[in-house]
Computed example of a mutant assay.
Amino acid sequence: MQVREIMTPSVHIADPNMTIREAARWMRADNVGALPVGENDRLVGMITDRDIVMRAVAEERSAGNTSVREVMSEGVCYCFEDDDVEGASQQMATHQVRRLPVLNRQKRLVGVVALADISRTDDEWAQDALKDISAPTDMARL
């Protein structure tokens, strides 16, 4: 099974210069916890609800004056739409992420594949990936 068969194909792409308030409102409207961040037609990061809380709210930064760029996660892992789902789930497990942007071979964003998408497959390896992605982290790092 290929990633394109289970991914969510339509996603908002956040601009790195928009405020985190705007990004949070998009997340609420779309009922998602993460948005890919794009600039000059390229994926440059991801912003998650956790990024907003840990890097802005906890630091008492203004939601109306803090840009997505200031709190987004850079160095984003991704997969291609024609990758097999097992490989994408292994990548999610390795990096302990719950969502992966999905690119076409021209490196244009075409969707997002989430842990929930993988969990709906009946394959045994999907359950192993779920365990690895959700493994507890070292609390001393927090």
Score class of each variant (00 low, 15 high):
Val57Glu: 06
Val57His: 03
Glu59Pro: 01
Arg61Ile: 13
Arg61Ser: 11
Ser62Ala: 13
Ser62Met: 06
Ser62Arg: 12
Ser62Pro: 05
Ala63Asp: 00
Gly64Ile: 01
Gly64Pro: 07
Gly64Ala: 12
Asn65Met: 08
Asn65Gly: 09
Thr66Glu: 07
Ser67Trp: 06
Val68Phe: 02
Val68Cys: 06
Glu70Tyr: 11
Met72Ser: 07
Ser73Val: 13
Ser73Gly: 15
Glu74Met: 10
Gly75Met: 12
Tyr78Val: 14
Tyr78Cys: 14
Phe80Cys: 13
Phe80Ile: 13
Phe80Gly: 05
Phe80Lys: 09
Glu81Met: 14
Glu81Asp: 14
Glu81Phe: 10
Asp82Glu: 14
Asp84Cys: 13
Asp84Arg: 14
Val85Ile: 15
Gly87Thr: 14
Ala88Met: 11
Ala88Glu: 04
Gln90Gly: 05
Gln91Glu: 13
Gln96Trp: 06
Val97Ala: 01
Val97Thr: 07
Arg98His: 13
Arg98Pro: 08
Arg98Ala: 08
Pro101Glu: 02
Leu103Pro: 01
Leu103Asp: 05
Arg105Lys: 10
Gln106His: 08
Gln106Asn: 15
Gln106Ala: 15
Gln106Gly: 12
Lys107Phe: 14
Lys107Val: 02
Arg108Leu: 10
Leu109Ser: 07
Val110Leu: 04
Gly111Val: 10
Val112Leu: 12
Val112Thr: 11
Leu115Arg: 05
Leu115Lys: 06
Ala116Arg: 14
Asp117Cys: 10
Asp117Tyr: 08
Ile118Gln: 05
Ile118Thr: 06
Ile118Lys: 02
Ser119Gly: 08
Arg120Gln: 05
Asp122Ser: 13
Asp122Leu: 12
Asp123His: 13
Asp123Leu: 11
Trp125His: 08
Trp125Glu: 08
Ala126Ile: 08
Gln127Ala: 11
Leu130Asp: 07
Lys131Ser: 04
Lys131Phe: 11
Asp132Met: 09
Asp132Ile: 03
Ile133His: 00
Ala135Phe: 00
Pro136Thr: 00
Met139Lys: 06
Ala140Leu: 02
